[in-house]
Amino acid sequence: MKKLLAECLGTFTLVFAGTGAIVINAATHGSITHVGIALVFGLVVLAMIHTFGDVSGAHLNPAVTLAFAAARRLPWREAPGYVVAQVAGAFAASLLLHFLFPQDTTLGATLPLGSDAQSFVLELVLSAILMLTILSVSTGAKEKGITAAITIGGVIALEALFAGPISGASMNPARSLAPAFISGHLSHLWLYLTAPILGALLAVPLCLCVRDSTCCCASPTSGKS
Rank of each mutant, 00 (worst) to 15 (best):
M1T: 07
K3E: 15
L4K: 04
T13G: 12
T13W: 13
L14M: 12
L14N: 06
A17K: 01
A17T: 13
G18R: 08
I24C: 10
A27E: 14
T28D: 01
T28C: 05
H29R: 10
G30S: 02
G30H: 06
S31Y: 08
I32A: 12
T33D: 11
G36K: 01
G36C: 07
G36P: 04
G36H: 03
I37A: 10
A38P: 10
L43T: 14
V44F: 05
V44Y: 00
V45W: 09
L46A: 12
A47P: 11
A47Y: 03
M48L: 11
F52P: 00
G53R: 02
D54N: 14
G57S: 02
H59W: 09
L60S: 03
A63H: 08
A67D: 09
A69I: 06
A71H: 10
A71M: 11
L74V: 15
W76S: 07
R77P: 00
A79N: 10
A79H: 04
A79W: 00
A79V: 03
P80K: 07
G81R: 11
G81D: 10
A85C: 05
A85I: 08
V87E: 07
A93S: 00
S94G: 05
S94K: 01
L97Y: 08
L97G: 05
P102C: 08
P102R: 06
Q103M: 11
Q103K: 13
Q103R: 14
T106M: 05
A109K: 01
A109M: 02
T110P: 00
L111H: 02
L111D: 10
P112S: 04
P112T: 00
L113E: 14
S115Q: 01
D116S: 15
V121W: 14
V121Y: 01
V121S: 04
L122E: 12
L122V: 14
E123W: 12
L124I: 05
V125S: 10
A128K: 02
A128I: 07
A128M: 15
I129R: 00
M131H: 05
T133S: 13
T133H: 00
I134Q: 05
L135H: 05
L135E: 08
G140T: 07
K144T: 12
K144S: 08
K144H: 12
I146P: 02
A149G: 09
A149Q: 08
A149N: 06
V155S: 12
E159P: 00
L161F: 15
L161N: 04
F162K: 00
A163V: 02
A163T: 13
P165Q: 07
I166L: 11
S167Y: 03
A169M: 12
M171W: 03
R175L: 14
S176D: 02
L177F: 15
P179H: 09
A180T: 01
H185G: 08
H185D: 13
H185N: 15
W190S: 04
W190Q: 06
W190N: 06
L191D: 03
L193A: 07
A195V: 08
I197F: 03
I197H: 04
A200S: 15
L201V: 12
L201M: 10
A203H: 03
P205H: 11
L206R: 01
C209S: 09
C216T: 13
C216S: 15
C217S: 14
P220K: 10
P220V: 10
T221H: 15
T221W: 07
G223H: 11
G223A: 13
